[in-house]
Simulated scan of single mutants.
Amino acid sequence: MKRDLKKELNRKKIIDAAYQLMIKNGIQKTSVKEVSELSGISFVTMYKYFKSKEELAEEVALQFFKENSQELQAIAEDETLDFLLKFKKFELRSKQLRLTLTPEVNEEFMRAFSESKAVQTYAKEWNDRFWQLMIKSGRKSGVINSDVSDEAISLFANMFTEYVSTHISDPKLIPQFEKLFMYGLSGNQSNR
């Protein structure tokens, strides 16, 4: 096996093991020793790939975000769904994601997301693509019929999602913020 391929496979084994453990137990409660045992990569060798547990946790957080954002992107790209159905599916998938992690683990991942430049860069690019698709769909279906520019809506949506994902620690509040985002203070679309 070529050396580069072996390195990449070892790196993947470490990340996969850390992912399994950190999703279940949290970042703090996952030890490097546990990751080593599960991955089959020696403790000493692991440090050749990741200088610290924090660096490994950042990679896990990035992988978690990428995997889950792909599902949300697929919803936005699905042209068979109208805007409101896309938004409802988005809300449902967001709720399912929140239930995937315990509140403590969710808080640790939110902190890891907010502290990671790699996650923030990926999230910004993803958010831009996602909201462009959603705005286009909303305008096409007539749900977004405001004279507010796509750029302003996208900026507001990005600020909103960034704020909620980095500052709201009570998972019970997130669906309420999503409703505020979608319908404003009126509470529903029919009051407009």
Results as ranks from 00 to 15, higher is better:
M1V: 11
D4S: 14
K6H: 13
E8F: 05
K13Y: 10
A17V: 02
A17S: 11
K29N: 15
S31K: 03
V35S: 00
V35H: 02
S36C: 00
T45H: 10
K51P: 02
K53Q: 07
E58L: 01
S69Q: 11
Q70G: 01
L72S: 05
E77K: 15
F83G: 06
L85Q: 12
F87W: 09
F87N: 02
S94W: 02
K95S: 12
T102L: 05
T102F: 05
P103Q: 02
E107N: 11
E108D: 07
F109I: 05
M110N: 08
E115A: 14
A118F: 11
A118I: 14
Q120C: 09
Q120V: 09
A123D: 06
A123N: 08
K124G: 12
W131E: 02
Q132W: 08
M134W: 05
S137C: 07
S137T: 02
G142S: 09
I144H: 04
N145D: 14
V148Y: 02
V148G: 01
D150C: 06
E151W: 00
E151G: 06
S154F: 02
S154K: 14
F156E: 01
F156S: 07
N158L: 00
V164K: 03
V164G: 05
S165H: 03
H167L: 08
D170A: 12
D170C: 09
F181S: 08
F181V: 10
S186G: 11
S190M: 15
